[in-house]
Nucleic acid binder design. Structure first.
Lengths: 356, 356
DNA sequence: CTTCATCTTGCATACGAATGCAAAACTGCT
DNA sequence: AGCAGTTTTGCATTCGTATGCAAGATGAAG
């Protein structure tokens, strides 16, 4: 029974008058768990329906001191991993009856005004999923008593909650895989060098290689940026002693690297060059690329993120929690296969060496 | 001079007391254009700084009846076109001092709760960029007096503002291009059949073909979905009389179609099959695909969207405005070239037949 | 029918900032 | 100094909802 046009600006008092009850009764009707008799509730509902009343979330926020808004900060969305995260976050937050205030499309140094906005809107929680944002921002928010979760990154001091995957182990797994594949010359195209994910991935990778006696790694910087990754690939792969195994810090860059290798330099993948990426994001699965990639379990990561936020909001405690999840090395066609260790699980091929 | 921890919950009255002025003075200090002397302003600023005061946007909204929040509704973000839009929207809205409340990750039929939320938060404007959302939603919002802009879609009755490109002309241009390329058997993989963009693109395409005497078009439905597009491609391209020219309703699907054609069916592109897409989105530019595609001018589209919103918010008038922009047929490698008509503009190759 | 316990209800107030209005402070001018 | 004109200030009220408190209604048990 829709009464057509919903005029905004219908207040609870108007509904109250129309229903012949007090404003409190109206409020209680729309407050789950409030003390209200079925009879008045019905009266109120009828009047509300008739007038097209909707509780004003702004006014409610003012008094409850809860906005039911979670801020999500993502400097850029070019890497499909982040839109995927965003979509899942939207889904889960909606289910928890929270809204998602998105901050994106700004340069990283502009983060100060962003911080101001966060504070002004009294958001109930913050998800920081920008690899490149200053750590100060996060700590400042946490200090202000707002639950913050770093998504896919950490800071040195772990004063603020985070959700990550075992990047170090991931890097090491990539090394093992490439070594088992019989590769001899190793390269790495890095992400933002200041980011924790990049440091850990590279750390694990070089550790793994070093243990097998490979101490030299050709290094170029891609800064998680497509254009820079292309340039890095051009430079590294046109060297006479170019690597035969290349770990790229994420799939977003790996795609670009593959295009350069194949179409600009005429290399065959994986015959001339094996490439391994990170994230296992959409394009990695497309047959044209088929990137062998360390996966990050997006669903569980988002679930953990929302879980931590809800937890901290409910308890009022903002003690830092750190959730570290496991990824898998999903094997596709962009890298030569080792003789053993590749197993099929749930229709996906995974590299799982015997010892683990 | 930062005083460290910003305690939230500092109110204007507290600042007032600390500065020895009235609460009004504090309010005026933070209201651009209000009547306040430099001297008191300075006093207030100092006190505010010291206490870590930030105006409470919620409280402000309540009285000004302006939330400075724009809602953006995008059912899914899998198609990179939408994240790109989102990023640009974020940038422009931030510049206009508006926040972006994102609704995503819900199935389309669930749009009712979404509408409720929009109303509850008293958003100042709405961008509807979901091809598949019901038209009612948009009209209901408009009826409620909230400026609404349909992004990349329209409704039959044009009671609500929209920003689109000339999809019909685009479809026709694709037809001309493929005909000029000497193709004989034409196919179309459609988007959501209920969407206006799909109808227009196909309408223009079939018109253009019909005028050249080609009245038969092989048709499969992709629903703007990757998996469905793959299935559609499999079906259409394994027919003995498969088309030699295929227009796919957007690049997101075209990528999938290309993968199926090349890697599952062993077709060469563009030798065996020419493919043209729509949107000119990121992956279309990647060398592995190099999709010839009708572009949609994202920047101008977003600019127009924000422009319309700001206009309507400022004027209070919500008379529907319709902005229709031009795209170009960006020529790459996924389709055979016509003998003439391809010109180079700003480093991009464009199909521009003589008469236009 | 009384009595006490439990539910409902309305009243009044609070949340934090913006703003019309009138009083107060300042300005410049004679 | 005195006055008119202008600017600045504070007071009081407002926005729309939630909630503690006390009064009223209802129900059950005796």
């Amino acid at each position: 029974m829709d009464s057509g046009v919903k005029k905004p600006g219908v207040t609870s008092s108007q509904v109250a008058r129309h229903a012949g009850v007090s404003q409190s009764a109206v409020s209680r009707t729309f407050t789950p768990g409030a003390s209200i008799s079925p009879k008045t509730r019905a009266k109120v509902m009828a009047a509300a329906e008739e007038l097209g009343y909707r509780p004003n979330a702004i006014a409610r926020s003012l008094i409850t001191n809860r906005s039911r808004i979670i801020a999500v900060v993502m400097a850029y969305l070019e890497n499909l991993f982040y839109p995927d995260v965003l979509e899942e976050l939207g889904r889960l937050l909606l289910k928890e009856n929270y809204r998602l205030l998105l901050f994106t499309g700004f340069m990283d140094r502009d983060s100060d005004p962003v911080f101001d906005q966060l504070m002004q809107y009294r958001v109930d929680g913050i998800v920081l999923a920008s690899t490149s944002l200053s750590s100060e921002l996060s700590e400042e928010c946490a200090a202000a008593g707002i639950p913050v979760v770093l998504f896919n990154r950490t800071t040195e001091r772990d004063a603020v909650s985070s959700v990550t995957t075992r990047n170090r182990e991931g890097g090491r797994r990539v090394a093992e895989f490439l070594i088992a594949g019989g590769h001899k010359r190793f390269g790495y195209i890095s992400g933002l060098q200041s980011s924790s994910t990049n440091r850990d991935r590279f750390g694990g990778y070089s550790e793994g290689l070093a243990e097998a006696g490979y101490t030299e790694i050709m290094l170029e910087v891609g800064n998680y940026d497509r254009a820079e990754a292309e340039a890095a690939a051009r430079k590294m792969l046109s060297r006479p002693d170019r690597p035969d195994a290349l770990f790229v810090a994420n799939d977003h860059m790996a795609v670009a690297v593959m295009d350069v290798a194949r179409h600009e330099l005429g290399l065959s993948i994986p015959e001339d060059l094996s490439i391994v990426g990170y994230d296992d994001v959409g394009p990695a699965r497309w047959t044209s690329y088929g990137i062998t990639s360390m996966s990050q379990p997006l669903g569980p990561m988002v679930e953990a993120t929302v879980g931590i936020l809800m937890d901290q909001i409910a308890s009022g405690e903002i003690e830092a929690q750190h959730c570290v999840l496991n990824g898998e090395l999903v094997v596709r066609t962009s890298a030569r296969l080792p003789k053993s260790g590749v197993v099929e699980v749930d229709g996906r091929r995974i590299y799982q060496p015997a010892q683990s």
